[in-house]
């Protein structure tokens, strides 16, 4: 049973890059262009096994999204990884505090991405 991963990023390039890597590795991928869109999808019944979200996004940023996701009944324990840059240590700590599991540092190389996912997603 392949796992579903939701990618939330306002940059279509980043989404495409992650999506193609994940699909190549047998994951199902859901995408959203910002936190608000992601939340709508999640409330609409999309149930990913893992969420990867950017921090800086229009409409609703990643941190706000994490806060909201943790209030949804089916997503209390879902692993969430933030997409950060090396200069955003504070953001990723803040993300962790709000309920993120960990973080990815952009640019995310394909093998690294898969490695991290296998680390936080048992059975992936």
């Amino acid at each position: 049973m392949s796992k579903t991963i939701m990618i939330v990023d306002d940059s279509a390039t980043m989404v495409l890059s992650l999506k193609s890597t994940l699909e190549m590795n047998g994951f199902k991928v859901e995408t959203a262009g910002d936190g608000a869109q992601a939340l709508t999808k999640l409330k609409g019944g999309v149930k990913p096994d893992l969420i990867i979200t950017d921090i800086n996004m229009p409409n609703m940023g990643g941190l706000e999204l994490i806060k909201n996701v943790r209030t949804l009944p089916g997503l209390r324990f879902t692993p969430i990884l933030t997409l950060t840059t090396e200069s955003q240590a504070e953001k990723r700590d803040e993300g962790k505090r709000l309920g993120a599991t960990g973080w990815l540092v952009k640019p995310v190389a394909g093998p690294d991405l898969v490695k991290v996912i296998k680390q936080v997603l048992p059975g992936a």
């Binding site: 943790r70 209390r76 324990f77 879902t78 309920g99 599991t101 936080v120 048992p122």
Partner: peptide
Amino acid sequence: FYQGDDPFF
């Protein structure tokens, strides 16, 4: 657990 952690894993 509410951070999506699985410490055992």
